[in-house]
Simulated assay, not measured.
Amino acid sequence: MALIDLFTGPRLGFLPLLTLGPTFASVSGSVRRTAAIGVLALAVCVPLALFHNRQFSTQNLLTLVTIFAVTGAGMLAAHLRIRRELELANVRMVAETAQRVLLRPVPRSAGDLRIALSYTSATAEARIGGDLYEVVTTPGGVRLLIGDVQGKGLDAVETAAWVLGAFREAAYDEPELAGVGDRLEISLARHLGGEKFVTAILAEVDGTGITLLNFGHPAPLVVRGDGTITPVDPDIEAPPLGLASLAASAPKPQRIPFQDGDQILLYTDGVIEARDHARAFYPLGERATLLAGATDPQEALDELRADLLRHVGGPVLDDVAMLLLRRQQ
């Protein structure tokens, strides 16, 4: 810019464009860098004004004042941006710590089971939300939980913590899966107020099959070894956890066969409620065929997640959790 002004002369007046230097520096640079670019712009502006003998002209004085003012504003903007970036980094660090405490890494294998997990938070500045999951290995078999807390934010995270804590304790103590569900209901009754609730599925896998206990949650999909895909709808509709008083009876455990090569996908409603730009829901029943071919369950689940994000065409609007189990000798 200075060279252009030097060769074209004062008639075209390119010097005011020197204010672009500190302006752009404030976008990505530090406060010191912005100040240095501003000083450099002033250092270029003054000699050029002297060269053209316009140092005392109204335009030159206005240019100097503008460069000085833009540099000061840019330094303030850079300071606020850097402080915001630090705050965001701290928020993400706290969220990651909370996630490691609440949503611990699940085991990738348990006996003849292979386990895959996918979790995507809808919150841009944090990596944890209202969806929850857990896998524990007990003497009687592997017990699992997947759930979705009503609402969002810190209240949802707090409720998820209560559910996970109660499940981790009850999964080892209760001989029957229904007893685990009762413990969760009792725990939530003490801590939830109003009309808050948690949809959830409890599952227990042993050597001959899998037992499901559905509390108002989307039905899981069973992918058989021959590629057949079947939703496992509950025999009796049951309300979510926290709303047991609205039900005439407790949910009944549902037993299904689970043979070598079979898979079961448990997921939250963020999957089936994901929409594309035309407002069409994600066709999970059709796209679950992606799970049938891969030898590694995690690779298959990652491909399904990628397909979901392609369908949405952007960030998800609700938390998405998927848990895939494959029986593999």
Rank of each mutant, 00 (worst) to 15 (best):
Gly72Tyr: 00
Ile82Val: 14
Gly72Pro: 01
Phe167Ile: 02
Glu96Phe: 00
Asp112Gln: 11
Gly153His: 10
Leu154Asn: 00
Gln59Ala: 14
Leu61Asp: 01
Gly151Ala: 11
Tyr133Asn: 08
Pro139Arg: 04
Pro107Ile: 03
Ala77Arg: 15
Pro47Phe: 07
Met93Ser: 10
Leu117Ile: 11
Gln55Val: 07
Met93Arg: 14
Thr123Leu: 04
Asp131Ser: 05
Ser109Gly: 10
Arg108Leu: 12
Arg114Leu: 10
Ile67Glu: 08
Leu62Gln: 14
Ala69Trp: 07
Tyr133Phe: 15
Val157Phe: 05
Val142Pro: 03
Phe56Val: 05
Asp155His: 14
Ala161Arg: 02
Val94Asp: 11
Arg114Cys: 07
Pro139Asn: 09
Thr97Glu: 13
Gly72Val: 04
Val157Arg: 04
Asn90His: 14
Val94Gly: 00
Val46Ile: 14
Ser57Gln: 12
Arg81Trp: 08
Ala116Arg: 07
Arg84Gln: 14
Leu132Thr: 07
Ala49Ile: 02
Arg81Val: 02
Arg104Glu: 13
Thr137Ala: 13
Leu117Ser: 06
Pro105Gly: 06
Tyr119Thr: 09
Gln55Phe: 12
Val106Tyr: 05
Leu145His: 05
Ala161His: 01
Arg83Cys: 00
Leu164Cys: 11
Thr71Pro: 10
Gln150Ile: 02
Asn60Ile: 11
Glu85Lys: 04
Ala166Pro: 02
Glu125Ile: 01
Pro47Leu: 08
Asn60Cys: 06
Leu50Pro: 00
Glu96Tyr: 00
Arg84Pro: 00
Leu132Val: 14
Met93Trp: 00
Leu88Pro: 01
Ser118Pro: 04
Gly111Cys: 12
Ala73Arg: 09
Ala89Cys: 03
Arg84Ala: 12
Ala166Lys: 04
His52Ala: 06
Pro107Asn: 13
Ala95Arg: 10
Val136Ser: 09
Leu86Lys: 14
His79Thr: 04
Leu103Phe: 01
Gly140Arg: 14
Val136Lys: 04
Ala77Tyr: 11
Gly130Cys: 08
Asp112Trp: 03
Leu144Lys: 11
Asp131Asn: 01
Gly140Gln: 12
Ala122Arg: 10
Gln150His: 00
Val157Glu: 06
Thr97Ala: 15
Thr97Arg: 08
Thr63His: 02
Ala110Gly: 09
Ser118Ala: 15
Val106Pro: 03
Asp112Pro: 09
Leu103Ile: 06
Thr159Tyr: 00
Ser121Cys: 10
Met75Thr: 02
Ala95Gly: 15
Gly147Ala: 11
Arg92Met: 13
Leu154Phe: 13
Ala156Phe: 06
Glu125Asp: 15
Leu113Tyr: 02
Leu113Glu: 02
Ile82Glu: 15
Trp162Asn: 08
Leu86Asn: 10
Arg54Tyr: 02
Ala89Asn: 06
Leu164Lys: 12
Thr63Ile: 04
Glu85Asp: 15
Leu64Arg: 03
Leu62Asp: 10
Phe51Ile: 08
Leu80Met: 12
Arg83Gly: 13
Pro105Asp: 10
Leu145Ala: 06
Phe68Pro: 01
Leu76Cys: 00
Thr138Leu: 09
Val46Lys: 08
Asp112Thr: 12
Asp155Tyr: 00
Ala161Asp: 00
Val142His: 09
Gly111Trp: 03
Phe167Gly: 06
Arg100Ser: 15
Arg100Lys: 13
Arg127Lys: 10
Glu96Gln: 12
Ala89Met: 11
